[in-house]
Simulated scan of single mutants.
Amino acid sequence: MTFTRLLRVAGAIFSLFFISTSTVQAGTLTSNEYQQYYHHNIEQGLMNDVQSIWQDSSGYYHIYYLADLNYKHDDDGTEWYHVKTKDFVHYEKLGVAIPKFQNKWEAVATGSVIKNTNKIFSDLPKKAIIAYFTSYTPTGQKQYVAYSIDNGVTYQPYSDGAIMSASSAKAHFRDPYVFFNKETKKITMYLAEDDKIGVYTSDDGKNFNYVGATVLNSGALNGKDLD
């Protein structure tokens, strides 16, 4: 290979790797500095925690994740975005499932979903999808519950306001993980609370009782245990 041809090949490789992919500075809404190209991504802003993955009757996996398209700009705060996929390579965007700053909640943070298959919510159909999530408010972290009857595309508030609230504006009381306990026939909820994971149960999905915790100190159980 002649030296001239070698330079041409080197130039082509340089163009492929350095010129054809324009880089946007980190910190802007459309930055692609940390972009990955093989799975679902968003066009701008912040993409954060996956909330839940569940499968529908047609074989699609539904995924909720936190996103803030206006990260560090006006109208800041995350909300739940929704996509579905069958192969975890190709994704169909279904938009915002749980929007921020609506229905008496603020920005929508981490949570989880369950199906109403066991009719724990007696006034909702079995096909309903129930979402629990934290919202950060001026008076503290609060838990909300909402439901969907259109296969998880849109959600309506199940309760008129928060179902659980932190003891103070600064207390950690967030990120509910919920599941239906087949043995007790109740919903169990785990909450991140400072140096413990609080454990709660509910007969109706709305009113929860504290039953104990996994702890890092002896005082966090408040006289209760899980045995």
Rank of each mutant, 00 (worst) to 15 (best):
132 Y>V: 04
80 W>D: 08
13 I>G: 14
222 N>E: 13
126 K>R: 02
101 F>T: 05
160 D>R: 05
89 V>E: 08
73 H>C: 15
43 E>V: 14
138 P>N: 06
210 Y>E: 07
86 K>N: 01
122 S>H: 09
227 D>C: 12
199 V>E: 02
178 V>K: 01
225 D>K: 08
36 Q>T: 10
128 A>G: 03
206 K>H: 14
63 I>E: 03
161 G>K: 04
209 N>H: 05
178 V>L: 04
102 Q>V: 12
7 L>S: 05
37 Y>Q: 12
57 S>Y: 03
169 A>M: 06
51 Q>T: 01
62 H>R: 06
3 F>C: 11
204 D>N: 04
48 N>E: 08
178 V>R: 07
146 A>H: 09
145 V>W: 11
132 Y>D: 07
145 V>I: 13
201 T>H: 01
173 F>S: 00
190 Y>S: 05
224 K>Q: 12
39 H>K: 12
125 P>N: 07
86 K>I: 07
93 K>T: 13
114 I>D: 01
212 G>Q: 04
8 R>W: 14
123 D>Y: 09
33 E>I: 15
33 E>T: 15
130 I>G: 01
30 T>Y: 10
177 Y>D: 15
39 H>W: 11
73 H>K: 14
52 S>M: 11
226 L>A: 11
109 A>W: 08
176 P>K: 07
13 I>M: 08
152 G>D: 00
16 L>S: 13
119 K>P: 09
86 K>L: 03
103 N>H: 06
24 V>Q: 07
219 G>P: 10
172 H>G: 11
44 Q>K: 10
85 T>Y: 09
133 F>G: 03
178 V>G: 02
215 V>E: 07
42 I>V: 09
89 V>G: 12
197 I>C: 07
57 S>Q: 13
218 S>K: 15
208 F>R: 00
73 H>T: 14
150 D>L: 10
210 Y>M: 03
15 S>M: 15
49 D>A: 06
37 Y>N: 08
164 M>T: 02
163 I>H: 08
70 N>Y: 05
42 I>N: 01
20 S>G: 10
142 K>F: 09
137 T>Q: 04
73 H>N: 15
42 I>K: 03
53 I>W: 07
166 A>V: 01
151 N>G: 07
79 E>W: 00
69 L>C: 06
23 T>E: 11
115 K>H: 15
83 V>F: 02
96 V>A: 06
167 S>H: 11
221 L>T: 12
182 K>Q: 15
29 L>D: 08
219 G>M: 12
186 K>N: 09
18 F>Y: 04
114 I>F: 00
108 V>M: 05
53 I>L: 07
111 G>T: 02
49 D>T: 03
217 N>I: 09
216 L>R: 12
45 G>R: 09
119 K>T: 14
107 A>C: 14
223 G>D: 04
99 P>L: 06
46 L>V: 13
81 Y>E: 01
63 I>F: 05
157 P>A: 03
20 S>N: 12
127 K>A: 10
222 N>F: 08
